[in-house]
Amino acid sequence: MRVNQNTMLLGQKVILVPYTTEHVPRYHEWMKSEELQRLTASEPLTLEQEYAMQHSWREDSDKCTFIVLDAEKWQAQPDSAEENCMVGDVNLFLTDLQDPTLGEIEVMIAGMTTLSLNKFEAKIGQGNEPSICMFKKLHFEQVAMNSVFQEVTLRLLVSEPERQWLLQQTSHVEEKQYRDRNWGSREANSW
């Protein structure tokens, strides 16, 4: 999504950066895992398809994708490529054209201030208990179960108390401009 193409979120333990072509080879290697495919309800893609998907996610107006970097590793090895510090990804999908305040999320982040979201949904495979438990700890409630797709839908309605809780939980996160290696070095954009 273009709204986050130049956004880096700096946390204490993780750094979120836009999903760029630099990240594709490592991401592609992850997605060869049958377990990850099962947990994310994904099909294996060729490397070329993965590059096309990355481009689509970057350009589409209904997706917001970040790569999660291990902050300690990234800061300890300033010359290391970002792909060596990758530990995951975070996705937000704007799925309801009738309700622009609703976003389907895979991992909780503080995205509501920029995107004006006040509802988050997570669709998780019924057998993925670790993810279901994690979202329930983040105050999500189960609102549906789809037996055809073998998934549950969990929702978080962001009331003012929930909004304040989320802001408190993410108060340490700092937003910075992100530039990939083609735009400048990490040192030039350092804090």
Rank of each mutant, 00 (worst) to 15 (best):
65 T>K: 01
22 E>V: 08
6 N>W: 10
116 S>T: 05
14 V>Y: 02
13 K>V: 04
58 R>M: 09
124 I>M: 00
35 E>K: 10
76 A>L: 06
17 V>C: 09
9 L>A: 09
12 Q>V: 03
79 D>A: 15
29 E>P: 11
51 Y>S: 07
89 D>N: 14
116 S>L: 06
64 C>H: 12
89 D>A: 11
109 I>W: 09
75 Q>G: 02
125 G>N: 00
103 G>Q: 06
83 E>R: 05
79 D>Y: 14
65 T>I: 04
74 W>H: 06
51 Y>Q: 08
82 E>N: 10
96 D>L: 13
106 E>T: 15
46 T>Y: 01
20 T>V: 09
56 S>N: 08
18 P>T: 01
72 E>C: 01
136 K>Y: 02
80 S>E: 12
62 D>L: 11
22 E>K: 11
138 L>F: 13
32 K>T: 12
11 G>C: 07
116 S>P: 03
8 M>R: 12
115 L>S: 02
26 R>E: 08
24 V>W: 08
104 E>P: 03
71 A>P: 04
41 A>F: 15
87 V>G: 00
39 L>H: 14
35 E>I: 04
114 T>S: 08
37 Q>W: 06
66 F>D: 04
76 A>Q: 05
72 E>P: 01
96 D>W: 10
9 L>F: 07
30 W>G: 09
105 I>V: 11
53 M>L: 15
20 T>M: 07
113 T>M: 04
117 L>Q: 03
139 H>G: 07
59 E>M: 08
119 K>P: 05
98 Q>K: 13
23 H>I: 02
25 P>R: 09
43 E>F: 03
52 A>H: 06
34 E>Q: 10
110 A>C: 05
92 L>W: 13
14 V>R: 03
102 L>M: 11
90 V>C: 08
65 T>H: 01
114 T>D: 08
27 Y>W: 14
35 E>W: 02
89 D>Y: 10
47 L>F: 05
26 R>M: 08
61 S>M: 14
23 H>L: 07
10 L>W: 05
130 P>G: 07
102 L>V: 15
114 T>Q: 09
40 T>K: 13
131 S>F: 02
40 T>S: 15
83 E>G: 00
46 T>D: 02
40 T>F: 15
50 E>G: 04
95 T>L: 14
27 Y>P: 10
88 G>H: 05
103 G>C: 12
113 T>W: 06
119 K>M: 04
75 Q>A: 02
30 W>P: 05
107 V>E: 13
136 K>P: 07
100 P>K: 10
87 V>H: 01
39 L>A: 12
127 G>I: 05
32 K>N: 13
101 T>V: 11
119 K>F: 03
95 T>S: 15
54 Q>R: 04
36 L>C: 01
62 D>C: 11
98 Q>M: 14
74 W>N: 00
136 K>A: 12
135 F>S: 04
22 E>I: 06
131 S>M: 05
99 D>V: 01
127 G>K: 08
110 A>L: 05
122 A>I: 01
100 P>R: 13
48 E>A: 09
129 E>C: 03
32 K>V: 09
17 V>H: 04
47 L>T: 03
76 A>I: 05
114 T>A: 10
32 K>R: 15
60 D>N: 14
123 K>D: 00
